[in-house]
Each structure stands twice: as C-alpha cells, then as structure tokens.
Amino acid sequence: MSKMHVKLTVNGKEVEGLAEPRTLLIHFLREDLKITGPHIGCETSHCGACTVDIDGKSVKSCTTFVAQVNGADITTVEGLTNDDGSLGVLQEMFREHHGLQCGFCTPGMITRAHRLLQENPNPTEEEIRFGMAGNLCRCTGYQNIVKAISASADMLNAQKEAAE
C-alpha cells in the first residue's frame, strides 16, 4: 500500500510525515515522531493508556488511524507541561498526591483528566470517577488519582480567579 502524506499539529508544533493509512496513531506518535508519552497497554481499546487529546476530545490513539486525524490538533502528556517546561498543574498534583505508582497509566490518566476539567471545572468525586472510567490503573486503586484530579481542579480554579 502506498504511503500518504500526513500533517498534524502535535503539542503546538506542526509535524509532517509519510505513513500508510492503516498506521495506528499511537504507532505514528511513538515510532515516527518519537513522542513516547502515550503508552500502549492493551492495544484493544480498553485501558486508556494511549489516550491523547484530538481537537478537544479524549481519544484512544490505538483505535484511530493516522489517516483519520490528518490535519488535526493533538495534545499528548508532553504538551501539558508549563511553558517553561516545569510540571503542569495536573502533573504536579499527581506527583504530590501519589496518583501513580509504576506510572504506566499516568500519561493517559493526565491527558484524559485535562479534558475532563476543561469540560467540568468543578467535578464531584462521582463525576471524576465516571469521567475517568475509560482509563485503567493496575497499581493505585484509583483513590489517589481521584484526589489528584480534585486537587488540580481546585488549583486551576484558584489560578483562574487570581488572574481575573
């Protein structure tokens, strides 16, 4: 099969490459672009470790062809740091609240939580659990992930208020 020309914006930068249309986005990100934040856990659309943000949606990049997202704006966990490269709020709160142990699920968790908080800046614990249901963690038991996201919401809201 012939390759197609792919053009994407990833973490604010325009990138281009050649890929077969059947290439899964996760493979294109990791192997062609060397963006290895998004992980491959199950590769069968179940675990959410491969979650990236595509045009404002949380998407499992193992279940997306690169052809489908040609022209899209993509954010991975690498794009959620502060401008100076220090940890962003969600990343910092996951660290502070022990929202990770082995860290394998974390890039997907943080990327999904980012979109959840964009859509619902004041989620209840139940809303966090429901909104994070597409991401599996085998280590933490989820309690500290929920705490980290809740603390991130508070901090982001405080930052917003201070800026106003």
């Binding site: 949380s58 998407v59 279940t63 997306t64 999904r112 429901f130 249901a133 597409g134």
Partner: peptide, 9 residues
Amino acid sequence: IADPQVRYM
C-alpha cells in the same frame, strides 16, 4: 455505552 473516550468517537 462504553466509556468517555469511546463516546467521543
């Protein structure tokens, strides 16, 4: 149906 990620797509 499914989970949040699947429902976006």
